[in-house]
Amino acid sequence: MSLESVKHHFQQWNRVADMMEFETSSATVELAAEAIGVIPARIAKTLSFRSDQEKAILIVAAGDVKIDNKKFRQTFGFKARMLTPDEVLEQTGHAIGGVCPFGLKNELDVFLDVSMKRFETLFPACGSANSAIELTTDEIFLYSYAREWVDVCKGWEEAEPRESVVLNNEV
């Protein structure tokens, strides 16, 4: 059902044919990166948090980052508390492993983390544990009805990830 709601969502932009479904799981950043053939940082992961109004908010971020609790509190004015898997399903309509900001069950506030701006394209899930779509950051912003770009993650500023493959200790 969740994959179907995302397909319905992407129909308005004629992007359903661009959705990818895999024979293997893409339920984690690492599995998605392996299934697609990209570095984990290019997986756009969607994180679900309980807001101060008991309504969920979604943060979409690069796959190689973690939430910075201090930045989160400064940006949103409340402590970062992730939803339980049952709450995620109830709020988004998507089960853990396929959570994305598209085809949501409820109208939720979506924020995009600046960690994704390092890449021309990223790969968010499409509502199931074996799906993805390649989108630019502008497309993710448009298709997710994002409210704004935020800076609430850490771990990506220190070193730029590289897509090059190391062969015989040469890059």
Rank of each mutant, 00 (worst) to 15 (best):
M1I: 09
M1F: 12
S2C: 07
L3F: 04
S5Q: 14
V6K: 04
V6P: 05
K7E: 11
K7I: 04
K7Y: 13
H9F: 08
H9A: 01
H9Y: 02
F10R: 07
W13Y: 15
W13T: 08
W13V: 11
W13G: 00
N14P: 10
N14D: 15
R15K: 15
M19A: 08
M19H: 05
F22K: 04
F22Y: 12
S26F: 06
T28A: 09
E30T: 12
A32E: 00
E34A: 11
A35S: 03
A41G: 01
A41K: 10
I43E: 04
A44G: 02
F49G: 00
R50F: 11
R50V: 11
R50H: 15
S51R: 11
Q53L: 15
E54C: 13
K55F: 08
K55S: 14
A61N: 11
A62F: 04
G63M: 02
G63D: 05
D64F: 08
D64C: 04
D68C: 09
K70M: 13
K71V: 12
Q74F: 02
Q74A: 14
T75N: 07
F76T: 02
F78W: 14
K79G: 08
K79P: 09
K79V: 13
R81S: 12
R81W: 00
M82W: 08
T84H: 10
P85E: 10
D86V: 12
D86I: 12
D86M: 08
L89G: 04
L89F: 06
E90M: 07
Q91V: 03
T92G: 00
H94F: 03
H94N: 05
A95E: 09
I96V: 09
G98T: 04
V99K: 02
C100G: 05
P101A: 15
P101N: 10
G103A: 03
L104M: 01
N106D: 15
N106Y: 07
N106V: 07
N106G: 13
L112W: 06
D113C: 09
D113N: 07
S115K: 12
K117C: 13
R118W: 07
E120P: 03
E120Q: 14
P124R: 06
G127T: 07
S128L: 04
S128T: 01
A129G: 10
N130T: 02
N130V: 03
S131I: 06
S131W: 02
A132Q: 00
I133R: 00
E134K: 08
T136G: 09
T136A: 13
Y145E: 06
E148T: 12
W149L: 13
V150G: 09
V150E: 01
D151W: 00
K154Q: 05
E157R: 11
A159R: 09
A159Y: 09
E160R: 11
S164K: 12
S164H: 14
V165T: 14
V165S: 14
V165R: 14
V165H: 15
V166M: 13
L167K: 11
L167Y: 13
N168A: 12
N169M: 13
N169Q: 15
N169E: 14
E170R: 10
V171K: 14
V171I: 15
